[in-house]
Structures are given as structure tokens and as C-alpha cells.
Computed example of a mutant assay.
Amino acid sequence: MQQIINRQSKAYVTWGLLAITIGVFLVETFSGGSKNINTLIMLGAKTNGLVQEGQWWRLITPIFLHIGVFHIFMNGFTLLYVGQILEPMIGHWRFFIIYIVSGIMGNLASLAFGANNAISAGASTSLFGMFAAFIAIAYIYRENRFLTELGKSFLGLIVINLLMDLTMSGIDIWGHVGGAIGGLLIGYALGLPKINRPKMILRILAIVLVVVISYFMYVKGMIVYG
């Protein structure tokens, strides 16, 4: 098991995503400032109203946008730290899928349940998905003590962060919840490379749940505020 976990030692996708995120932040900075609402909207931040008008790409672009230096520093550090553990464990393309799908599901949850006039940006939707993917993997391979302890650690991290979200203003808690659900399901569906677990029927069921939940959140977001 340990040999398979370390089979891809380089976190190329993690570094690539970080480079893109930093590059986008520089564009924000030189286009009016990362805290400038007009700049954020111009570059793809999510507002429910614009998504409802048909600008569906705003469910993806907010993953790479950040509001202020502290925001990108915290998310960038987390991406680098966690990505260098998760990506070598599951492989490059699995990691990329978890990151993007979690981010999209987080933004869909924000669309469905979040404040209508709020501006959403940041990689935290994807980061919560990364945390939750560890939980899924730990459950699948629960006989492995290393993975079990890792899963417990990230479960605690999710709980602590969600509790903190409840006490802070301006935090899109629904985005975090949606991202975690996405990461949990996709992490379960993909598993680890070259290990035939879980059963294929359960993998397919997890993917179906991702599609159904995403569709439900999209429809709800478009109807409730439309």
C-alpha cells in the first residue's frame, strides 16, 4: 500500500494550480485591485444574478480568484501543503478532477443556498474538497492505519473550519459544505491508482450522486432567485 501511495512523488498539478492562482492574483492587482468589486466581477467572481443570466463560467472562475493578500496567502499555502500530500497519493489527473469538481460543487451550493447579492471568490471550495477526499480514501482503506489517521485529521480540520465559519461574517459556508461533499464523493469514486476498491457499482453510484446533487443545486439556484 505505501509503495502505491508514493508512486507519483512530484506534485506537478499542485504547483501548476498555484502558479495559475498567483498569476490571476497579479492580474487582479494590476487591473484595479484584488478587493475592487468591479475588478472581481470583470475577472469572473460569482454573483448569483450573473449566473442566473447565463454566465455559467462563474461557477468555475471564482476558484482562481482571491480577495486580498491574506486570502491568497492562506489558500495558496493550504493548496501547496495539502496538495503535496494528496496528489502523490492519488495521482495527477485524479487530484485535478477532485480540485475542479469540488470547486464547482461548492459554487453551486453557494448559488443554491447562499446570499443572492454576495460576491464569491477563492479556492476554499476546492480546498474543502481536498480535505474531504482524504476522508473518503481513509474509509475505503480503513485497515491502513496511516490513511485512517490522516482521514481523522482532515475530518477534524473540516469540522473546526465549519465551526469557525459560523462565527465569522463574509464567509461562504455553503461553498465550503458543497466543496466538501464534492470532494468526498469524487474521492470515493476515484480511490487510489491500481487498487480495485471500492466496487465499480459503488464508484458509479458516487458519480451519479455528484451529478444529481449538482443538478439539484443548479436548478434550485436558478429558480429561488430567478
Rank of each mutant, 00 (worst) to 15 (best):
F95K: 02
A132K: 04
F134E: 00
T61M: 15
N196W: 00
I223M: 06
I201M: 04
F95H: 01
T39C: 11
I135V: 12
I195S: 00
W57V: 07
G33T: 11
K10R: 06
F64R: 02
A132M: 13
Q3T: 08
E53T: 04
V224M: 12
G54S: 12
S169F: 08
L18D: 04
P193M: 08
I104N: 01
I97R: 11
I119H: 06
G83V: 00
M42N: 11
I72C: 04
L157P: 07
V219A: 13
P88Q: 11
V212F: 12
A123G: 15
A118F: 11
L202M: 06
S31G: 12
A115P: 00
Y81C: 13
F64C: 03
G23H: 08
G122D: 02
V27I: 15
Y218H: 06
N6F: 12
Q55F: 13
F95W: 05
L157A: 15
I137G: 04
G91M: 01
A109G: 15
I181N: 04
E28D: 01
H71C: 03
K199P: 08
G76P: 03
G129Y: 08
V82H: 09
I85K: 15
H176E: 04
T21H: 10
G76T: 00
Y139H: 07
W174L: 01
L202W: 09
M42I: 05
A109R: 00
P62S: 12
F77G: 14
G226E: 08
Y81V: 13
S124C: 14
G122T: 10
N117Y: 09
L157H: 12
E53N: 15
I41V: 15
T21K: 01
L163E: 06
F113L: 14
M74D: 10
I181R: 01
T125R: 09
I207C: 14
H176Q: 12
L184T: 02
G103S: 09
F64D: 00
G44N: 11
L166H: 01
S120W: 03
H176T: 00
M89D: 01
W174V: 03
S153I: 13
H92R: 10
G151F: 02
L59T: 00
M200F: 02
